[in-house]
């Protein structure tokens, strides 16, 4: 149906493309095919990367570059102005450092639990179990849910009169206002994040497990190696490259955590679950004055971190795919 609709359109495009082909020759026609994509990349990805520097080194809340004043490294100096980097309260932009601290703790815990539970789940799913497809789907489906839906699902479970509190009271414990306590809010943020994304990493690890040749295990059985020894000596070393990819991927995504936590806690209580992207969002777009300079400077610092992580990831992927 759809094809029949597009087909005449594509035939119309054929005429100018044929003319271009006669004009340019086949090899230069490649650029014509690339053009739309490159225009979009250039305008909405590459240009912004360059412009980000311009914003990071200029001040005032004006979005038009020409109306902004050059301030040198002022934005960075303010962001990095701290008596002690370990204590956000001593920093000029304390919220930024609080966000940095939160993000650091968040990724340490989130990546740890994520890799741990994904590995456990992948190991279980790799066994000869019944209805494997169903169980795989069970762990995977939250990956597809939108961040706002994930946040609301858990908000509803955790709300004051929610089912979790009902369960606690049923066994004689006191109910807790989960999202108004900073430690619990942080815990549930990590939990929600692992819950929502675990299936994705499980899938990658499962593929890694299935790539381990069967005969290695058969040899282990011959040598009468126990399950624990087989895991330590065979599964884990052979799975290590995949584990590394999973870890770095989880790191890259963890650093950029925003959507579901913003919808879940709004960054609160206080700033207990405010992460770096939320700091950038609120500094630049949250309300007047729109501090584009500091937002861009913080983005730049984050971008540097991400580039470093991606380079590591590409390096690992290349090394492991080359054997």
């Amino acid at each position: 149906m759809l094809l029949r609709l597009i087909s005449p359109l594509m035939n119309v495009v054929d005429l100018p493309m044929r003319a271009l082909q006669r004009r340019l020759g086949i090899s230069r026609l490649a650029w014509v095919f690339l053009l739309p994509n490159l225009l979009l990349f250039g305008t909405f990805a590459f240009l912004p990367i360059l412009l980000n520097f311009a914003y990071a080194f200029t001040g005032t809340d004006n979005i038009l570059l020409l109306d902004r004043t050059f301030v040198g490294a002022e934005n960075f100096a303010q962001l990095l102005d701290c008596d002690s980097y370990l204590d956000p309260n001593t920093c000029a932009r304390d919220l930024f450092w609080r966000a940095v601290h939160n993000t650091a703790w968040f990724i340490v815990m989130q990546v740890g639990f994520m890799v741990g539970f994904s590995l456990l789940t992948a190991l279980v799913l790799n066994r000869e179990i019944k209805a494997r497809g169903f169980f795989r789907a069970v762990f995977f489906f939250p990956v597809l849910l939108s961040p706002v839906v994930v946040a609301l699902v858990w908000k509803w479970v955790l709300q004051r009169n929610g089912i979790l509190n009902a369960g606690l009271e049923a066994v004689g414990m006191d109910s807790v206002v989960w999202l108004l306590d900073r430690h619990w809010a942080f815990f549930w943020s990590v939990f929600l994040s692992v819950w929502a994304h675990m299936g994705f990493y499980t899938l990658i690890l499962l593929a890694g497990l299935q790539a381990i040749p069967r005969d290695v295990y058969e040899a282990a059985v011959m040598d009468a190696a126990g399950p624990w020894r087989t895991f330590r000596r065979i599964t884990l070393p052979l799975l290590m490259p995949t584990m590394l990819v999973v870890m770095v991927l989880a790191l890259i995504k963890g650093v950029q955590t925003f959507d579901e936590i913003y919808a879940f806690t709004g960054g609160g209580p206080g700033s207990a679950t405010t992460f770096i992207i939320q700091y950038i969002y609120e500094t630049g777009f949250g309300g007047a004055p729109r501090l584009f300079g500091p937002a861009a400077a913080a983005s730049l610092l984050l971008a540097l971190l991400l580039v470093a992580l991606t380079v590591i990831q590409l390096w690992i992927t290349r090394r492991s795919s080359n054997g």
Partner: peptide
């Protein structure tokens, strides 16, 4: 296609891959 500059285009694409939308919000907005 084989053409001059193909390597550069591939490198550009990888470069863009490293910098997600979420870290260029301000200039993208502009």
């Amino acid at each position: 296609y084989e053409f001059r500059g193909r390597g550069a285009v591939v490198a550009l694409v990888i470069g863009v891959l490293m910098v997600p939308q979420s870290v260029v919000l301000v200039p993208l907005f502009m």
